[in-house]
Design a protein around this nucleic acid. Structure first.
Lengths: 157, 157
DNA sequence: CAAAAATAAATTGCACACAATTTGATTGTC
DNA sequence: GACAATCAAATTGTGTGCAATTTATTTTTG
């Protein structure tokens, strides 16, 4: 076996930017956000706000924590974001009567209605990626696995 | 053919959070950044600062624009970041004598020396991903392709 | 049941990202 | 050689992300 066949690259190779999964992820994610920008501008949402709305369209009345578990974001990120969506008239934030520590998020009619505007977005994005649906589904699944390994869901003791 | 076999999902499926490649990318990227956090804290860098250093370790004397092309970031992001790295003593920013519009970035000895500290990072990360090197290389390559499709490199007219 | 521990949001402070604008320098055109 | 167009960084303003702390509430424990 020649030394070139060694499967483990040296530190010089390992530190090359283009060999970093982290950079591939990072730059692809930012590029994806830029792709969404004009589509979301049209309906008045930022990209993280869109993610929040996707969760709420699946079912609202969630607490801030529950939203955070779904999106892997904390209250420091969500609280101001939700306040902006409230100002925009898309949702209401109300303290839970049973447990005053919790804040429940409820869609307004306007917020629910926005879903119709958003329905055309996935097809636009799919087209721009120049990928087939199965390809994207496979990638989504791989990334989900990776994320689960990186950030293991805390077992709720 | 049953209607269930229809390859194109309806809008309800297409808008589900867990079917979004964009969210898979976004959440995996943030999870990856969190994985790096303690490793980078140890050498006093943030994650985007680490990416800048990776580029400079491959070769410095780049202009801000050249760095930006490599990392897909603009001067609004890089200028303050580079100033922080300069304050930390890792690099120097100097106007190009030939073209005073450009600012050249040069590593200091401290900046070059930091590379040795960073050499252990890739192995730590690889271990934490619980993936094989070929798996990660394949994913990196797929993500590179996707990013290229999303953000086509401008042909320099 | 009172004090301590735990929990949920909110707040604070820092560092990105990026659109849009500004500042200053260079190039192209006549 | 003036002057418009272009270009490179820097600046400004907004919106995240997130660690660390604070505030308010609920639960646990002695």
């Amino acid at each position: 076996m020649r030394s070139d066949d060694n499967l483990f690259p040296d530190s010089s190779e390992l530190l090359r930017l283009d060999n970093q999964v982290c950079f591939a992820l990072y730059s692809a994610s930012l590029a994806m956000t830029k792709l969404y920008k004009p589509l979301l501008d049209a309906i008045g949402l930022t990209y993280p706000q869109y993610l929040v709305m996707l969760v709420l369209w699946e079912g609202d009345q969630l607490t801030v924590s529950e939203l955070g578990e779904r999106l892997y974001l904390d209250s420091g990120t969500l609280t101001p974001l939700l306040k902006r969506l409230e100002s925009a008239g898309l949702l209401a934030r109300q303290r839970d009567a049973q447990d005053e520590r919790r804040v429940r998020i409820a869609l307004t009619d306007t917020g629910r209605a926005l879903r119709a505007e958003a329905e055309k977005i996935p097809a636009c994005v799919l087209q721009r990626t120049q990928c087939t649906l199965p390809e994207l589904q496979a990638l989504t699944s791989q990334l989900g696995t990776l994320r689960a390994r990186l950030a293991p869901r805390r077992s709720h003791t």
